[in-house]
Design a protein around this nucleic acid. Sequence first.
DNA 1: GAACACGACTCAGAAATTTCTCG
DNA 2: ACGAGAAATTTCTGAGTCGTGTT
Length: 682
Amino acid sequence: MESACSPRVSVKREPEDDEFAAKKKGLKRKRIKDEPMEGPSHSSATPTTKKKTKQRGQEEESDGEAQKKKSKKKTEKTVKKEEGEHPNSKKPKKTKEDIAEARLMKIKKKEEEEQSRWRWWEEEKYEDGVKWKFLEHNGPSFPPEYQPLPDNVHFYYNGKKVKLSLAAEEVALFFAQMLDHDYTTKKVFRENYFKDWRKEMTHEERTLIQDLDKCGFGEIHAMHKAKVEARKIMTKEEKLVVKEANKKMVDEYGYCLLDHHKERIGNFKIEPPGLFRGRGEHPKQGLLKKRIQPEDVIINCSKEARVPVPPAGHRWKEVRHDNAVTWLASWTENIQGSIKYIMLNANSKLKGEKDWEKYEVARKLKSCVDNIRNQYTQDLKSKQMGTRQRAVALYFIDKLALRAGNEKEEGETADTVGCCSLRVEHITLHEKLEGNECVVEFDFLGKDSIRYYNKVPVIRKVFKNLKLFLENKQPGDDLFDRLNTGMLNKHLSSLMAGLTAKVFRTYNASITLQEQLKELTNKSDNVPEKLLSYNRANRAVAILCNHQRAPPKTFDQSMANLQAKIDARKEMLSLSKTELKQAKKEAKTKGSSEPRLQTLVERKKAAVQRCEEQLLKMEVQATDREENKQIALGTSKLNYLDPRISVAWCTNMDVPVDKIYNKSQRDKFAWAIDMTEADFEF
DNA sequence: GAACACGACTCAGAAATTTCTCG
DNA sequence: ACGAGAAATTTCTGAGTCGTGTT
């Protein structure tokens, strides 16, 4: 199994990392320079040739990509490219050649990437529970140490300058930085903050500073704003320097070696200290999130791997070798006491395989969902109260795609609920409402304190049961007092292996997309129209899953801008139309003998057509945007919709995949893009 | 044997950053 | 060509789900 690939090989070679580390204030760990000898690394195990299966004439995968490549290449040719690199023209100005060259490089890079991609989906899966056989990485990167305030920036208490100790000053800065944020006006936030801040103060400071309202953060706040401003107006060169530094960081810490393959790490940075920003009315908002030290961090890697070197003068809390888990490092966070992990990027094998599996389970549900529905409909009449509650809960989960709703410790988190944790106060029953019978009105805060508000007509049996459940209860009582997620999931797993409450969300989301796409798209539509249909199908899912967003601050403005553009384009269209008429007339009167006039007519015709296309595109865009005002499509696209549905749709509709998936989405769904046949059905 | 704590993982929207577009 | 503003993308880290082990 093991190949020649040496386990001692560093994940990434970086010839100058020491220099960089030194520059970064000696905070970054000193890395033992290991001699990297890997060449194109890992690709050994991957077939370099493209595809095996794929006899479809239509290349679904990089349909778009290939197309783009082609067209780009064409333009290069017309621009007349030159291959030879002129070492460097001193001119900052970009010549056409430079641009062409840059494009060429981009294409080359893309191809290389494609070549080196690990096609894990073509490999055999490991035995149960084994996540990897070899894992090596450089550990997490730590945030820079606190930089004391410059001498000309002061903190004031009661109008008087006070020089704070380093620890207290750092925490003061956390607050000052957030002064423009709504958080700092909230009572809970301020109280929590002040309590935790005082813990960081010296005895003297604590004696003096008794009231947050008397604290003067003005100068610190101003300094912070100035810093942000300064970053914005950096010159190109300065920005480049920063970019380079970031790249080095990613090169060193951003990758790991997992079973001979270099994989991108999702979050390789330890979370910096700061003030806890809970969502909604979180009782712990404003508490101090402490700085994490290497001594807090557990490293996970394989026994044979080179253990990451902790920052100078430090050691790890523990180094373990557990290949039953996917994380590379972990620490316990001080606000909730929960564990945080360093894990791989979404485009990694470990994440991708799991994702694929998730959709396979959901597809399995498709084949037995009818039975399950019959079952819970029967259960609505059960003599057992618990069974009835379970049936009603399942009805909601299935019909409304509600989350399971685990119980939460009171006072530890914001008060939010899911299906099983719904309380009496969250629903209102209406015998009749707006022309419907048996309507349940839901109003509660769900995950992330996003409001769920919906008026839903339900079947009579459900309605009657709900009335029963509500009897003799207070608003704060549980609606399903005989049910919790554990019981629900236990029941579900007895109906189908791998079935839990969340599978319904995945299933209903994906099946909805598939149905909507079928319903909304016409083969004869043009691409912008097809994309509008796709977005609408996507939107139907987002609405089902209640994926909301705050309307963008600039929404009205940008809508107005777009409308203005549309109007302008309309005018232009009518203008070019008259020009076309004019030209036609001229051509006619002067006779077709004049070839110049003929071409003019052709040109005008083309202009009109182009104009019309652009106008349509904009109008479609306007519709799309308006409909999308408060809907977030991203979450469902990324987490609920089987990508194979979308890929197959693209193939069948002749829409390039990159019209619906951007680069990182294509990476994440590479498995689906590669394997999906046009006739795929969810 | 159920209640509970905990661990590991997915999913979530906001905020930050980068890229694109248009005057 | 250039820069501002908008749009798209990426990053960040909090908030869920769900299985397992412990009491």
